[in-house]
Design a protein around this nucleic acid. Sequence first.
DNA 1: GAGTGGTCTAGACCACCTA
DNA 2: AGGTGGTCTAGACCACTCC
Lengths: 237, 237
Amino acid sequence: MKKYLALYNTLVAQIDEGVYKAGDLLPFEKELIDSYELSRDTVRKALSLLENEGYINKVKGKGSVVLDRAQYHFSMNRLTSFKELSDKTGMSVITRVHSFALSDGEVGMREKLGLSSREKLWQIVRTRNVDGMTIILDKDYLLHRHVPTLDMNTCEHSIFDYLENELGLKIGFAQKEIVVEAATEEDITLLELGDTKVVAVIRSYVFLQEGELLQFSESRHRADKFRFTDFARRLPG
Amino acid sequence: MKKYLALYNTLVAQIDEGVYKAGDLLPFEKELIDSYELSRDTVRKALSLLENEGYINKVKGKGSVVLDRAQYHFSMNRLTSFKELSDKTGMSVITRVHSFALSDGEVGMREKLGLSSREKLWQIVRTRNVDGMTIILDKDYLLHRHVPTLDMNTCEHSIFDYLENELGLKIGFAQKEIVVEAATEEDITLLELGDTKVVAVIRSYVFLQEGELLQFSESRHRADKFRFTDFARRLPG
DNA sequence: GAGTGGTCTAGACCACCTA
DNA sequence: AGGTGGTCTAGACCACTCC
């Protein structure tokens, strides 16, 4: 639909298929303008997206250099669902739902999230078995206000899809933090931890486009299987 | 100099000073255009930057909502030097240089970085004492090709500044990864680790604007003092 | 000098929110 | 209905790279 996104997607597809390899130059702006019949700004918007996503590096006076993206494959720079991630990486992922129910949240959680004493939360506890090993314990808390109903089938597949496509919620942005913590009894049991009684925890606060809190999540990873990657740019100027 | 950066900087300053608080609306595009006498695209470029940095959330038909940035203070989303980070957060940071010398790198490193057998590396080992506690062990490797000379004073202060301002190197982007590892003897000694013999490691590969590797770094953190925060947006579309 | 991307401008139409 | 941000276009000048 949107022209700059269409161009972005075709260029991403071409890079993924190897039409342009690491070190190659993408067609110049002028060439893209002519061959796709777009204005310069539209082409530049698509290229800026590619740059922000770590696909290319634009160099003044030279062109857009394709980067080696093989090493960035597990990037969690963006807000993506677990499902998208496993689809792209081709890992075999089995999700097991341990519980889902309306609750009051854990102690102190209501205060931390700034919720009223009435506000109920959906609590969902799931484990992820990746390539034959249970390595992640996901604990999600969804605000009942935004999510009136929820079922087992949704929890087993993609809650993200459900929120966006079924409920029409518009997810805007998320704040994440990564810390290392001592394993709880729950971690030890569900993740079959061995010697190292330590987990890496990704906590995220997911907000709707208007800035309202939608969800709080804890993703607790076996420390020995944990890897987080990030792509960073220098600020312009 | 650049108009959109000037506007970005003044708006950042105003948000930091509390002129606009979390939940407030920034002046509308039209108002910024008129009061600063800029074109719409220039104003939009500044606002896009603010949005990408997590300062605001733009909502169609409504305006630019200022986000609560207090919680994001330790953001390492961007490529910033340790010095910048400590300047902004007001923490007392003492850097101690343990060694710096030209070396061949550690075993396997040359292969991993794709370097020729001739290529020499500057190896710099430093610890960071934050608010009275030594919590980070930084091991940096700079390619000799790009950095002919280096001295003690530079290592104690900002290598980043030296590379950019003295040598005129143009840093483009970095790939980072975070993993949790068992502590080495070096970690235990230098970081005065107690019970938990585990460290959080941020590895980064820093590239120049043209895509050449400049630096490889390992930042090894006491697990109990480690915290990494990240701001993520949903892709447009 | 020719070609590249970076910045800036002016104007148009659309989709969305609020009233 | 009026205002907002989102997209798209056309054209200009500049800074940088490469030959």
